[in-house]
Nucleic acid binder design. Structure first.
Length: 470
DNA sequence: GGCCCTTTGAAGCCT
DNA sequence: AGGCTTCAAAGGGCC
């Protein structure tokens, strides 16, 4: 039986809800012919995994995009309790053959709007599963989730009476890249099987995610969307921005000023402080900036600063020449008009098989990571190892304090060693996801030695200790 | 509602 | 190639 064809046909003919239920029923039926009928993986009590499908579009994180949990960790409790639970992450971070949990980034230099979560999440604010309630009619969570394998040694089966066992609500999905995801389809010879699916096959109807960016700057209409269909993605911070982020509180306390142009005054002081730093001291921030840039490139394949160029400022600065000049007006208008087309081109080219080559795109040594897609926030990671490439990537999930298991992904029908990860992922067979080792939440806020990370972001000339964060 | 102010660095744009 | 412009953050002020 051609399962794929059948599923595809069903997808075309059915409504989403019907489709999902039917597909799952079909899969169950198919798999029932094998050794053991697959049942949804049991959820360890301490994991409290999300059991609902996630809106893929909400994963399109970005500073101003709609990744609610990025904006404020407390949103878990305020808007969707389920979000506090360890949830499968929709993107993959590859930083080495051994990938470290995203929570290892939890340290100074956090970004306030969730765009740079590795530095963002204050440990004290990390939501824990224990604080989570599971209402009977839980709202649709915003993000996909990673389902723990049924045979997780440390897993303790729990029942979720409130979570209706609807097939469409228990399908774990791992987002691979833009447009593709891994979905758990069952068990084959004792291994969890995942299939590559198009996102729209699993996309929920509407994202209820509130706007992420609540800052004043986030109110700008031009930042609300990159274009009609694409969320605005902000630039990664440079070294000085990271320095400001970290030192602003100190300088504000030192100055103890309020009122007129406080931020501008503080920035002036920060600028002086920055210039007074030694090269070695500055190198620390250049390192971070390189990491941020690298992560940004992974999360937003194809994105360049061009995408934002001319979209933010709506009127000329006072110091600039008068905009009364018709030519200047025309040029400004040009900048505002051409970008969507360019963006669309970039988007289409950032496929599995070919990625755009831009200054900000770093394909080496992590083609795989780029291919797998990074459009997601991260609060926890699990190890996903791709056997043929001998490369591992992380699958961040929600809740840094839990779900410490590390999983291995092995393709069930990965017959030929791929030339590159890109080619192999272009038409992969079902993948298996099994736990291979465990890590623990004690790592939160800790650092990992460079030897723990065999794949790292490209080092910058300033780079001296970036690996420690990865 | 949204830009200004102010800083440095990165990157795009223009000549 | 080199210079200019824009945007990253912050938040009160101002239009």
């Amino acid at each position: 039986m051609d399962v794929s064809a059948e599923i595809e046909r069903a997808i075309e003919e059915m409504e989403r809800g019907e489709l999902l239920s039917t597909v799952w029923a079909a899969i169950d039926e198919i798999l029932a012919d094998t050794s053991n009928p697959p049942s949804p993986p049991l959820v360890p009590a301490e994991l409290e995994l999300n059991t609902h499908p996630q809106p893929v579009e909400s994963q399109a994180e970005g500073y101003g995009a709609c990744i609610p949990m990025m904006a404020d960790p407390h949103m878990f409790e305020q808007q969707n309790p389920l979000m506090a639970a360890p949830t499968m992450y929709d993107g993959l971070l590859c930083q080495g053959d051994i990938i470290q949990p995203g929570h290892l980034y939890s340290q100074a230099g956090a970004y306030s709007q969730g765009q740079y979560l590795p530095y963002l999440w204050p440990e004290a604010d990390v939501p824990t599963a224990t604080a989570v309630s599971h209402p009977a009619a839980a709202p649709q969570p915003y993000l996909p989730y990673l389902w723990p394998v049924a045979d997780v040694p440390t897993a303790t089966a729990v029942s979720h009476p409130a979570a209706a066992p609807q097939p469409c609500n228990i399908a774990p999905v791992v987002k691979l890249s833009e447009g593709q995801s891994l979905r758990w389809v069952g068990v084959w010879n004792g291994e969890m099987l995942y299939e590559v699916i198009a996102e729209d096959h699993f996309a929920p109807p509407v994202s209820t995610a509130p706007p992420l960016n609540t800052s004043k700057s986030g109110k700008r209409k031009c930042e609300s969307q990159q274009d009609e269909n694409r969320p605005y993605v902000k630039k990664p911070p440079n070294a000085f921005m990271l320095f400001m982020k970290e030192q602003r509180v100190n300088v504000e306390a030192e100055l103890n000023i309020k009122g007129i142009r406080t931020a501008a005054a503080v920035n002036t002081v920060l600028g002086r402080k920055w210039n007074s730093l030694t090269k070695e001291e500055q190198a620390k921030y250049y390192d971070k900036a390189e990491e941020e840039k690298w992560l940004h490139a992974q999360r937003h394949p194809g994105w360049t600063t061009r995408d934002n160029y001319g979209k933010k400022r709506k009127r000329q600065r006072k110091v600039k020449a008068s905009a009364s000049n018709p030519e200047e007006d025309t040029q400004q208008a040009k900048k505002l008009c051409v970008t969507p087309v360019q963006t669309a081109v970039m988007e289409s080219s950032s496929s599995l098989t070919e990625a755009p080559h831009t200054k900000t795109r770093m394909m080496e040594p992590c083609d795989l990571q780029t291919v797998l897609g990074m459009e997601a926030p991260q609060t926890q990671t699990v190890l996903v190892q791709l056997p043929h490439t001998q490369t591992a990537v992380t699958v961040p999930v929600f809740d840094m304090c839990h779900l410490p298991q590390v999983y291995e992904v092995s393709p069930a029908s990965w017959l030929d060693p791929p030339e590159t990860a890109s080619t192999s992922l272009a038409s992969p067979g079902p993948l298996t996801l099994t736990q291979i080792e465990s890590t623990h939440s004690e790592d939160v806020g800790g650092q990992v030695s460079p030897s723990d990370s065999q794949l790292k972001p490209p080092s910058s000339p300033h780079c001296t200790a970036s690996a420690a964060l990865l």
